[in-house]
Amino acid sequence: MTPLQSGPFDPGAEGQDTHLVVENARGQSSLWPAWRAVPKGWSAVFGPAPHEACVGRVEARRG
């Protein structure tokens, strides 16, 4: 049996700095895995930080 691999948006280990919050010129924000390069047209605005902290930051920016 092949072990399951983590996807880019899996939370990862609790307490680990696994994600970023990225934003584009239109003010849209998104969760992004810290180990991947930030895509063209987006900038990191928070993190790297644990998954839950980044989710909270994205939700706060939407609200």
Rank of each mutant, 00 (worst) to 15 (best):
M1C: 04
M1K: 00
M1P: 00
M1A: 09
P3G: 06
P3D: 12
P3S: 09
L4G: 00
L4V: 06
L4N: 07
L4S: 03
S6Q: 12
S6W: 09
S6K: 12
G7K: 04
G7H: 04
P8Y: 01
P8M: 00
F9T: 06
F9P: 10
P11C: 00
P11W: 01
P11F: 00
A13N: 10
A13P: 15
A13Q: 15
A13G: 11
A13E: 15
A13W: 08
E14Q: 07
E14M: 09
G15P: 03
G15K: 10
G15V: 10
D17W: 05
T18A: 04
T18I: 11
T18C: 02
H19K: 03
H19E: 03
L20P: 11
L20S: 12
V21K: 01
V21T: 03
V21S: 08
V22Y: 07
V22W: 04
V22N: 02
V22D: 04
E23C: 12
E23N: 03
N24P: 13
R26C: 04
G27V: 14
G27K: 13
Q28A: 06
Q28N: 09
S29R: 05
S30V: 09
S30C: 13
L31Q: 05
W32K: 02
P33Y: 01
A34Q: 07
A34I: 10
R36K: 04
A37S: 13
A37T: 12
A37D: 14
A37Q: 07
A37C: 08
V38A: 01
P39T: 13
P39W: 15
K40I: 06
K40S: 08
G41D: 02
G41P: 06
G41Y: 08
G41F: 13
W42R: 08
S43A: 13
S43T: 14
A44M: 02
A44V: 11
A44R: 05
A44F: 06
V45W: 01
F46G: 09
F46H: 15
F46T: 13
F46Y: 15
F46L: 09
G47C: 08
P48A: 09
P48R: 02
H51E: 11
H51W: 14
E52Y: 02
A53C: 01
C54T: 05
C54I: 00
V55N: 09
V55L: 12
G56R: 11
V58S: 13
E59V: 10
E59D: 13
A60F: 03
A60E: 15
A60S: 14
R61G: 15
R62A: 15
R62Y: 04
G63A: 12
G63M: 05
G63T: 06
